[in-house]
Amino acid sequence: MMSLDFIWLTFLRLIAALPVTIEVWFLSILFGGFVAACVTWMRVSGILPFSLFARLFIFIFRGSPLLIQLFIIYYGLPSIPFARHSFLWPFLREPFYCAVLSLALCTAGYTSEIFRGALAAVPRGQVEAARACGMSGFLLFRRIILPIAARQALPAYSTEVISMTKATALVSLITLWDVLSVALKIRNDTLITYTPLLIAGAIYYVFNYILARVFVWLEYVVSPHLRRRVY
C-alpha cells in the first residue's frame, strides 16, 4: 500500500503548483468579467453592428470547447507569420498570457449571457420609479440597475467562477503546469495511478468548497430584503 511519505511529498508538490492554478484563474475571471461587461453593453446597446459582434463573440466562445480555443490561440496564431512579427509576439510567446487570454475570452462568452439575463430581470417599474425621481444615466445605473442586476446574477455567476477553477486544468496543453497536470506528471514518473489524482481532487474540492461558501455569504450580504427582520 501507499506510504504516507509519498502522500505527503505528492501533496507538497501539488500545493506548490496551486499558485499557477490560482493566478490563471483569478486573472481570467478579472479580465473575463471586464470583457463580458463590454460585450453585454454591446449586445443591449441597440446599435446593430455592435450587437451582431456581441452575438458572434458569444456564439464562438460559448459554442466550442476550451481545449480547441486554447490550441488555436497558442499553437495556431504563430503559424500566421504576421502574428509572429507583430508587436503582440512578446505577449503571445508566453504560455501564461495565452492561457489567461483564452480562458478570459471563454468565460466572457458565458458571463455576458449571465449579465444580460440579470439586466433583463430588473423590473421595469423600478427603472420608471427612479426616472420619476429624476435619476438618469450613470446615477440610475449605479444606484438602481447595478445592485438589482448583481443580485440576480450572483447564483449563476458563482457557478461560472467555480467551473473556471476546473477549466484551468486544461492549460498543461500549453506547457503551464497546474495542480492537475503536476498530478499526472507524478503519475507518469512513478506509475502510481490513483493516489496523485485523488490528492489533486481533494485540493480542487477544498478550494471550490471555500469558494462556494464565500458566494453563499455574498448572496446573504446583497439580499438584506430576504432576511428575517429582527426588531
Binding site: T159, I162, S163, K166, A169, L170, L180, T193, L197, A200, G201, Y204, Y205, N208, Y209, A212
Partner: peptide, 18 residues
C-alpha cells in the same frame, strides 16, 4: 452535488472510466 461540481471534469471522467 458539491463533489461533482467541485472536482475537475477530467478527473471525474478518469475515475468513472477506470
Amino acid at each position: 452535488a458539491s463533489l461533482f461540481r467541485g472536482l475537475p471534469e477530467l478527473l471525474v471522467i478518469y475515475f468513472v472510466y477506470f
